[in-house]
Design a protein around this nucleic acid. Structure first.
Length: 167
DNA sequence: ATATCGATCGGCT
DNA sequence: GCCGATCGATATT
């Protein structure tokens, strides 16, 4: 099972919206681990969210995977962090997992890369109450698989599918 | 088109 | 008891 990551958000210990900005505990320990590991948490009692740790150890950081466009699937099947985790079967047992082929989860460049329109929109993160001013959310402008808009965002296009996964 | 709301639950106060 | 890095349904402009 695979797809193209089309929407992400960044989080860092340096700002208040990051789960690791205030306390370090068993719950968020993964955020402080080394790059390439997963930080998975339960949100709203219902959904899991998946981050990839990016910065050095002992410095909380992560990129939240928000949407993935998948071939031969509904364009919204992994459109949003909770749906994404669901679709890929990721839960708390994957917390602290290191990305690698051996572990069954990894990221690589796709052969479709040349065909994809790589224009990005950079805007505000969704669902946070602090550090709202930071524009640390990015998505592929032409993707049809973007999650709901942040307030004040312009609507992502739902026409003009950006090539690969037309049904 | 935006706004509000309920479901659901582990961790914290 | 309160609160979420959510989602889908419903209500309202």
């Amino acid at each position: 099972m695979w797809g193209v990551i089309v929407e992400t958000e960044a989080y860092s210990q340096a700002e208040e919206a990051c789960h690791g900005s205030k306390k370090r505990s068993n719950k968020n320990e993964a955020l402080f681990s080394s790059p390439g590991q997963l930080y998975v948490y339960l949100t709203y009692g219902k959904y899991y969210c998946v981050n990839i740790v990016t910065d050095k150890s002992d410095w909380a950081s992560g990129v939240l995977l928000r949407s993935i466009a998948m071939p031969n699937e509904d364009e919204r099947s992994a459109s949003g962090p909770g749906l994404l985790a669901n679709r890929f079967g990721i839960n708390l047992t994957h917390n602290r997992l290191k990305l690698s082929k051996e572990n069954g989860f990894w990221i690589s460049q796709t052969s479709l890369y040349q065909e994809i329109d790589k224009k990005l929109i950079q805007t505000n993160r969704i669902g946070i109450s602090q550090a709202k001013e930071l524009k640390w959310r990015w998505y592929l402008q032409k993707s049809r698989s973007i999650s709901k808009r942040a307030s004040g965002d312009k609507s992502p296009p739902r026409h003009n599918a950006w090539i690969p996964f037309a049904h």
